[in-house]
Simulated scan of single mutants.
Amino acid sequence: MATPLTADTLLEALRAEGVDVVEHDGWRTHNRNHKGAWGPVNGVVIHHTVSTGTDSSVALCRDGYAELPGPLCHAVIDKAGRVHLIGHGRTNHAGLGDSDVLDAVVAESALPEPRRNDTDGNAHFYGFECVNLGDGRDPWPAAQLDAIERASAALCRAHGWQAPSVIGHKEWTGTKVDPRGFTMQDMRARIAARLSAGPGQGTGPTPPPADPGRHQPFPGAGFFTALPHSPVVTAMGERLVAEGCSDYAEGPGPQWTQADRRSYAKWQRKLGFTGSDADGWPGRTSWDALKVPYSG
């Protein structure tokens, strides 16, 4: 059991773990505390939103709806790996669940199957809603999974918990199926690996350190397929524009988009690549030829 983190301590813990945090207006005091206690807290519950789009998903989780007023979680994790803070305190995310599951979370032991709904989870858990349709087909980008891992590990590290303190909503109650599309066993393994390392380190798709010389070294194909939000992407886009390979309606900016991929494909074709070698995903040869300035 633990006293909930203050808003400042929560923010500090997330940033120390390398989380890309977006603070929304009023998040520090947006809660349902007038409906009951928040705390002692015992763990983290992971959800999917059954929605698409970052802005609309954040608005839904912040405001809720007539039958279930917001906030519906403490933070929304979007597909680009950004963690949107929208509430602090009691939120309408976990609902009723099994007291035997809560006992297992407290003991950090194997979870039983949830068979009854006799305990108020909103009082005992932090909640992260993750943007996904939850149909088993909507993809979970690497950047989003990395953010779930980092944000969960941040709370565990701050409270002295281990990975078994992080559960899925479907592990709390038999009335839910979220999250769907990855397994909580795999996610807990990732969190455990991160906790065994220092803060900010771990298993996610972090690009290798940049060369402090003139040009940015190739950060690896996985860096781009994780749809990063990085100054490296802006610097790359500016070089593509300078080379006459722009397909941008606006920008370029730090978030990797399909406009970046289309522009990069133009650069690949300019170099003479064809077919799958000109698919818009950067490779080492074309990257080195682009000579992207070092962006720190």
Rank of each mutant, 00 (worst) to 15 (best):
G222V: 01
S286K: 10
T203S: 13
T54H: 02
Y264V: 07
T29S: 15
A153Q: 01
H24L: 13
G18S: 02
N132C: 12
V22C: 05
R157F: 12
Y294P: 02
T285E: 14
G181W: 11
P114V: 04
P205N: 12
E250G: 14
N31F: 01
A235H: 07
L155W: 00
G160M: 09
T183F: 10
T6G: 15
V292L: 07
T52W: 06
D25P: 07
I46Q: 11
L5E: 10
L68E: 07
G87Q: 09
A193N: 12
H229K: 08
A163R: 02
A249W: 15
E23F: 00
V131F: 06
H74L: 08
K291Y: 02
L60A: 09
A59R: 14
A37F: 00
M187K: 09
G275Q: 04
G244L: 09
P139F: 08
G272Q: 12
C245T: 04
N132Q: 08
R62K: 14
A104N: 05
G220H: 07
C245Q: 05
P4I: 04
R214T: 15
G26F: 12
I167M: 06
W256M: 10
T3Q: 15
F224P: 03
A265M: 06
N132M: 03
C61Y: 01
V58D: 10
N33H: 11
E113M: 15
A7Y: 03
S230W: 08
V177W: 02
R262S: 11
H88L: 05
T175E: 13
P217V: 03
D118R: 01
Y264G: 02
L102I: 02
V105I: 15
D260P: 02
D260W: 06
S57C: 09
G87M: 08
K266E: 13
L10K: 08
H34L: 12
G213E: 05
D277Q: 14
A158L: 07
D103C: 00
R116T: 07
L240E: 05
D211C: 10
L195Y: 09
Y65E: 00
R180G: 00
L111R: 12
M184H: 11
G220T: 01
A153C: 03
V22F: 00
A94R: 06
N117I: 01
L11D: 11
A37Y: 00
S263D: 07
S165W: 02
G121C: 08
P212K: 05
T3G: 04
G81Y: 05
Q258A: 14
L72A: 09
G53H: 08
A110K: 14
G272L: 11
A16D: 14
R284L: 11
F223E: 03
C130Q: 09
L195H: 11
L72N: 06
I86P: 01
P282Q: 05
E113D: 15
E171R: 10
P69T: 09
N31K: 04
R28Y: 10
S165N: 07
A107S: 06
I46E: 06
V241I: 14
A197P: 10
M187W: 06
V41A: 02
E171M: 10
D135A: 08
A80D: 08
H30Q: 10
G160Y: 09
P254M: 03
G127D: 10
R190S: 13
H229W: 13
G198T: 11
P205Y: 08
A163K: 03
K79N: 05
G87I: 07
S56V: 14
S152R: 04
G121D: 04
A226R: 02
T203R: 05
